[in-house]
Simulated assay, not measured.
Amino acid sequence: MVKGGVIIQILDRKQVERIRKMYPEGTQICLDEMEGERNMPSGLKGKVCYVDDAGQIHVNWENGSSLAVLPEVDSFHKIGEPHKRKEHDMQR
């Protein structure tokens, strides 16, 4: 899959389950950078709705958007935890 000219790695079932455990429904996150989305500024906060079978984290953002974050492309962190760039690097 390609997003903004970046090839996105397809995650296996084990990696998706790890993301689901890390980001259960209701988890609050803060956006650091969303690839190719000008209307999604750094610092934007949102609440996780669910993680789909591709490992995309669907979020209700405080600006009214419902765009998903892609763990292998976008940068974000849980609110209340230390900020790390691409904190959710899925290692096999």
Rank of each mutant, 00 (worst) to 15 (best):
S66D: 14
M40I: 01
V48A: 00
R85G: 10
M1F: 11
H58E: 00
D53W: 03
M40L: 10
E33V: 09
S66P: 05
H88K: 14
Q15C: 12
Y23M: 13
L67K: 02
Q9V: 09
D12Y: 08
R85F: 13
H58G: 08
L31M: 12
V6T: 12
L70H: 07
L31Q: 03
G46T: 02
V51A: 00
Q56R: 10
D53E: 08
E37C: 09
R38K: 04
E87R: 02
D74W: 02
I10V: 14
Q91M: 15
D74Y: 02
Y50L: 09
G64E: 02
E17T: 04
G4M: 09
P82V: 09
V73R: 01
P71Y: 04
R92F: 08
E33I: 07
M22C: 08
L44W: 04
Q15F: 01
M90Q: 07
P24W: 09
G26N: 11
D32G: 05
K45I: 10
D53R: 10
K84P: 01
N63F: 06
R85L: 15
H77C: 08
K78I: 00
E17G: 04
M90L: 15
G46C: 07
E72H: 01
H58R: 03
L44H: 08
Q56P: 00
P41L: 13
Y23R: 11
K84M: 07
N60C: 09
H58V: 07
K45D: 07
K84F: 11
D89A: 15
N39L: 10
V16F: 05
D53P: 05
H83P: 06
I10L: 13
L44E: 07
P41K: 11
R20S: 07
L67V: 10
L70F: 11
I10K: 15
L11H: 06
W61N: 05
Q91A: 14
C49N: 12
I19L: 14
